[in-house]
Amino acid sequence: MKTALVTGASSGIGYAFAQTLAERGYNLVLVARSQDKLEQLANNLQSSHNITTEVIPQDLTATNAAQNLFNIVTSKEMNIDLLINNAGFGDYGVFADSSLDKQLEMIQLNITSLTALTHLFLSPMREKGTGGIINISSIAGFQPLPYMSIYAATKAFVLSFSEAIWAENRDAGITVTCVCPGPTETEFFKVANFPDSAVASAQQNYTSPEAVVKAALEAFDKQQANVVTGGLPNQLIVNIPRFLPRETLVSAVAQQFRPHQ
């Protein structure tokens, strides 16, 4: 049986990945900050799908957290066949007025830990000549996003980075797929401190975490470099900006996302 490691597995898209991969017969390594939620999920999946699960509580915003996680997995002699880099968060507001510590934590989680985990688990995959990595980006990664400037920039990194290593590793038996969801029915907007009006607008275009995971795994099975989930509206969001002057685009997005006084 293959083994998948899922970060941010206690809720949202990570939770849906864990459920779907368990249905596919994967053994699971579940990673998040909340040990109680992970253990409940692990117990449910073990009893329902006859798989083995390993729970590793880890705060990936911490320095060296990725290396610590890799060391734990290695010490338990677990071979990871599929890495799901799902953990991440956003923050809404004017950059100059935002908490610097929170912005740096976002970079640490969304970029630094993702990059470190990719590097650490990719090396043994290359040695075996098989494996896969799914990195979660966002449709926000396709254009600058005023009032979510750091979040969009981190997701642009994930998209660019993932596509590059997809090309580097496709002939080595390893698939790398970057998943770019739009608004998804998770706790993202609550954690990001979005105003109620913006949340209400986003809810009109919500995709379920299960639908995101289904599209992600279909793209991964086809060895695609990336997939934009959520149908035609999100395809328009990521493709129309290519035909607009960048200042026009950013000004329009700023008008849409500007906080109400």
Rank of each mutant, 00 (worst) to 15 (best):
T184S: 07
F194K: 01
P57T: 06
F243K: 11
N50H: 08
N169M: 10
K190W: 03
V55D: 00
V212S: 08
P181I: 11
F142Y: 13
N68Y: 03
I139S: 00
F257W: 05
T186Y: 04
S197F: 08
A87Y: 01
T7A: 04
M1Q: 15
Q204K: 15
A66R: 03
G88N: 02
N193I: 01
E247N: 15
A140E: 02
N85S: 03
P183M: 11
S34Y: 03
Y147W: 04
T177S: 05
T186H: 05
L159K: 06
F220E: 04
I51S: 05
A22N: 04
S75C: 11
F17D: 03
A164L: 09
N205M: 08
A172K: 13
K102F: 14
R24M: 13
I136A: 01
H260I: 10
G173C: 10
D171I: 10
Q223K: 15
Q204S: 15
A254T: 06
N68T: 10
L117G: 11
A167H: 11
S197P: 00
N68G: 09
L159A: 04
S201G: 10
I165P: 05
L30H: 01
A215S: 15
A252P: 03
E247Q: 15
V191W: 00
W166C: 02
T154E: 04
M148R: 02
I56G: 09
A62L: 13
L109V: 10
P57I: 05
A198E: 08
I133S: 01
F17R: 00
V29I: 14
A172L: 14
P183G: 08
N234H: 10
M148D: 02
G231D: 05
R170A: 13
L236F: 13
S47D: 02
A202L: 13
A87K: 00
Q224D: 15
G132F: 00
L145W: 01
